[in-house]
Nucleic acid binder design. Structure first.
Lengths: 233, 233, 233, 233
DNA sequence: TATGAATGAGAGTTCATTCAT
DNA sequence: CATGAATGAACTCTCATTCAT
């Protein structure tokens, strides 16, 4: 097992090798990302990926267990991006509503702006492929919903209300809204010029809807909403 | 063997034949609807449909050109339902905002309540099957968006604003929101008991968001929003 | 489900269809038998079977679940033949030793004479293919060994000895002997002329060995083998 | 880089190299032996052998032409063992029958006792791999049969009989018997405790069968079997 | 009209073998 | 000598579609 003479010279070669291997891996993965996104998962053949990545079919299978594994690795990368980018956005908000807004903005500008095909794969192509893929997909959405729902619950607590379910529903609603907007405008069409307008109005809609729900709940939930800070001045 | 001209004498028979033929057609179509929804379009084999519909494989091909045609017919039926149900709901609202609300309510209660599998096929299974299917899908969404967008434009005009694009964006946002909520709660889970709560809060969110956008536009769009009729007190 | 007018005419057609289907099934199965035997199981491709049986690849899969199923069906047929032919031979013997001899004779003359390729598949080609195949294989041998072992035990009891294990060992030894002789002379070579000699000498060997074991056991097992009927006069 | 002529100075190094090379060769061969035996020839991948032998795939191909060569080398080694061990046993017997018995005993105790996996590869895994492998396999069996057959012929000659063919048949029968017993009890099961019993009874059977054949032939072969030396009293 | 056996192109996957380093 | 990434021919199995009856 122990390689005998890993001299300096070897080590440099070994490093280069490792780097090249990593590059191939990435090259295949990115080719798959592009083709899955352009033509759909099930319409993409391993042959296609191999051809476009300029490797042999067997090479794809050297780096990935099977076609599904290719998809899983892509989802894994997406999951990482979602966690990183949205997580940071969330932390940058000063209050719950702002946190949700920041996340919404980051979703548009960073996630969809930088990784549109990952988003499409996550939303479209990885649906219904297999139970295992579904598990990974769900995990990403659950984490997102949980964060948004927690932020909403936090606001609700200021009003003395504890409506976990409503928080969840609203979080899901927001997710769906952002998702579709992103899908419609940032991908299908190249309305990139209007991104500013879109982001702005959607966030206005989001904040308006959010506050309306809070208002509604505070009226319904407590007979005397007493110290109700007017949430929107 | 030679089929005779359907004389008056066997017109009753002919009618029965026609009725039976229509029943077969429907039976196959409904079986396909169920299986596409349960197992996904590409995981459903013509063999499966034939077996479950209790006909031979060849019979399926007698009534439908091919597998894609089955999907197209289903989308056609869905399109009809969407037009009918949402159209009626729209007309029942007394003002634009109410019209959108009524449509949202109808979407949940009637469309998803009565035809959940058609909705799933429209949203999930018919995605990326072929260009022709995509065209039909898009047509349905465009019609929906157009109606909502028109309603929004109508309100905007009251404020003297003409923002077609924003109207469209908001309409898309609303669509995505409703779609995902419906998908999450009315299908995957059997939270049927909470349907009331869900519908209520989502409509509150919708109205709140909508009004916020209107307010925002009226402030931004006109230097003197003077005669701003408070659209909802 | 209920087919409506199964008139006499249809019934005749239906019967012919069924017969033709059965013929195809048999045709494919026999082609597989021949090729598995000639070239080995793993060297035989489904393509080969299809080509030689003059059907399409898909047709093979219409009649058999997969390649392994083809082998299992062959083993099943072999099992039936072994049960029938050896069972009858066994019953025709008047005493235990004769029963074993009759079975040995039937093995050579009937089983190997009539179904040599089935025997080869059972002994060679189906080895180590899969756990399920192994189970079926073992079942056949166990049944055979059990019958022979029971016959031996029966004789031993006459001597007042109860040596189950020895009976089993001897039964296995006999099986191996017959098997190899059959394989060597009735298949590989075409020494069919000498079948008579071979059968005769092998049965002499078998009987001699058997009686020697009985004699040995009766001497070892009982201090006073008293009423020892001279087993061979 | 250019390999220098191995001068006297590095002859020690050269020897170590050679020793290490031989060790590698053996290590790979033994790993192959184990895996071929455990999982079957065709289920064993070169990758597996390399991994388990802790070398790279390419190294396997440095020492062996191809996968088949690995099998051939194993059969070669087996052939050597069979020649050595059975040859010695044969020579140790004082008369023909005893020689055969000694060989039978050696087969069980030495060959199967010391090299079970080689035996399994010879009997199971190397069957039907390729014509060349088949040739080597057959060679081993022919040598064995020839030795046994010669011993039998030798006895027959004492009776004044010359039945080459019968001698061969009996030799084949004995081979099959021993083979199967060994396979059944010394490998599949761990009945090692009963080895004594098995060996004893099988040899009794063998001797009994052998003598029966001799007796039979001497009666049939010579009108006056008068001077029949009772071969064993 | 209805049947269902038959088709065969095409997909995913495997693995013995090679060769640049 | 040793390595192990790369190769691609070959194999099994699927399933939409057809067509003789």
């Amino acid at each position: 097992m122990a390689r005998q003479h890993p001299s300096q010279a070897d080590s440099v070669t070994a490093q280069r090798r490792k780097r090249e291997k990593e590059q191939r891996y990435q090259s295949i993965l990115q080719t798959a990302e592009r083709l899955f996104c352009e033509n759909g998962y099930s319409n993409t053949k391993i042959q296609d990926i191999a051809r476009e990545a300029e490797v042999a079919v067997g090479t794809v299978y050297f780096y990935f267990r099977n076609k599904e594994d290719l998809l899983l690795q892509l989802i894994e990368a997406t999951s990482f991006n979602v966690r990183t980018i949205l997580g940071e956005a969330f932390r940058s908000g000063k209050n719950p509503v702002e946190r949700i807004e920041q996340a919404g903005r980051a979703l548009f500008q960073d996630l969809w702006g930088l990784h549109p095909s990952q988003m499409i794969i996550l939303l479209k192509e990885s649906v219904g492929v297999s139970p295992e893929v579904e598990t990974h997909r769900q995990a990403i959405f659950q984490r997102l919903n949980r964060d948004v729902a927690l932020a909403i619950e936090e606001v609700l607590e200021e009003y003395g209300i504890s409506e976990r379910f409503v928080a969840e529903v609203v979080s899901v609603a927001i997710g769906g809204m952002l998702e579709r907007i992103a899908y419609q405008y940032l991908v299908s069409q190249d309305r990139s010029a209007d991104t500013e307008t879109i982001t702005r109005e959607v966030l206005v809609f989001l904040r308006g809807g959010l506050l309306a729900v809070l208002r509604d709940l505070s009226q319904a939930g407590s007979g005397a909403p007493g110290k109700e800070k007017k949430p929107e001045s």
